[in-house]
Design a protein around this nucleic acid. Structure first.
Lengths: 221, 221
DNA sequence: CTGTTGCCATAACACTGTTATGGTACATGA
DNA sequence: TCATGTACCATAACAGTGTTATGGCAACAG
């Protein structure tokens, strides 16, 4: 299309958009502001990205690249489904340290934006880590359930729901007040879900009637 | 403020907004279109609701009223934490039958909308049902965990996450393809979560190693 | 009758994403 | 060297958005 090297404007626009998103949030992502920050006119966004939707798609690709890499780098936790738990914590850590990007990717904050093929591919790449972790656990007989897709769906819904409640400050009072309380609730949720998903054989020797109380504060995330 | 009965315009605007939201989705919720459908000028929205945010707040109140009533009406399912499972299914049923309203209330689709006190009260009223169900289960010793707030947080996150994935057609391929597949995944998630949250004493006699396979299709929702 | 208050329409403002018009710089071919 | 065409981009405009300044009209209070 163009000779490599002459797309400085494209890079400037993308960097400006990333910076605006990180520094000021998605509401600052207007074509005019991005163009001004990149030092060009609004036309640049249309020349290089086809419009705002294309620019948001490019931000998706960047975001899912970073997100997927974080999931791949995740260290396994101890216990059954340890890799899954490690990825869940990495998921949460990435979301909380990139809140604006997470909202852009998952909260529908750009009205009526539908991701294009590139963005969808980037997203699929990130989810591949999750699926691989579950497939591995299934292969080792750690799962009570044999449908990888369903287990992935459940895990993703749980983690996404927990992160969403924290990012929107929703949820019953008390839990959403502090990041530490959220972290404890997050770990409690993982603990319960693992208990329900893991094969009984893989569970640690059940401690009978020992209740899990609020005093159980694992050092999370 | 005004004598009762002379707020026909207010009711007309609210009805027009509800209708536009239900029939055409949140993107049709513009001040001009609502006013035109209500048969007045845009000023009416400002006179009676203070602006678009106030109108959206009123839609929140209506939405959480209906939503909360649906939760209150929920029939308990059988098994441990049956009332909680019944509410979860009622939650999903309401969300799927009021998708535009659910998106309005939970998806941040009105840019930068922050709910006012009335809307927050309406939301709190709806959540009260959930908290009551959990408090009841805790009182009957059905819970492994003794922190009602944390359990409510976990349950809400799970259900919200599951509903969100279906409404956005996200999630690993295969599960989100049909409503029936979603329903099965939903029930599988509830089953796993209940297994992790319920006190072992409250669990039905464990069937040992019987795996829960995809053939386990409970008639859900 | 006068003044006040509540309700509302017209028209405008500032902002959004988008695009029609035209200009400039550069490569290509004769 | 000159003509042609292509790639990039700035200006200015268009239609849409939420919001508001201005002013008019009707009903009620003194």
């Amino acid at each position: 299309m163009t000779t490599p090297g002459d797309d400085d404007t494209r890079r400037a626009i993308l960097d400006a958009a990333l910076n605006l998103l990180t520094e000021q949030g998605h509401h600052a992502l207007t074509v005019r502001r991005v163009a001004a920050a990149a030092g060009c006119s609004t036309i640049g966004v249309y020349t290089w990205f086809g419009g705002k939707d294309g620019l948001v798609d490019a931000l998706w690709v960047e975001g899912f690249g970073s997100f997927g890499a974080a999931l791949k780098r995740a260290r396994s936790a101890s216990g059954p489904l340890g890799r899954l738990v490690g990825q869940a914590r990495a998921y949460r850590r990435w979301a909380l340290s990139h809140p604006s990007h997470y909202q852009l990717m998952f909260f529908n904050v750009i009205p009526d934006h539908r991701p294009g093929p590139d963005a969808a591919d980037a997203a699929a790449g990130a989810y591949a880590s999750l699926l691989a972790a579950i497939e591995g656990a299934r292969g080792r007989g750690e799962l009570r359930h044999d449908d990888t897709g369903t287990v992935a769906h459940i895990c993703w819904a749980m983690v996404h729901g927990l992160v969403t409640l924290q990012l929107t400050n929703s949820g019953p009072e008390g839990v959403t007040d502090s990041d530490a309380a959220n972290g404890r609730a997050f770990d409690a949720a993982l603990e319960a879900l693992v208990c329900g998903l893991a094969h009984p054989r893989a569970n640690p020797p059940a401690d009978g009637d020992r209740p899990i109380t609020r005093a159980t504060r694992s050092k999370s995330v």
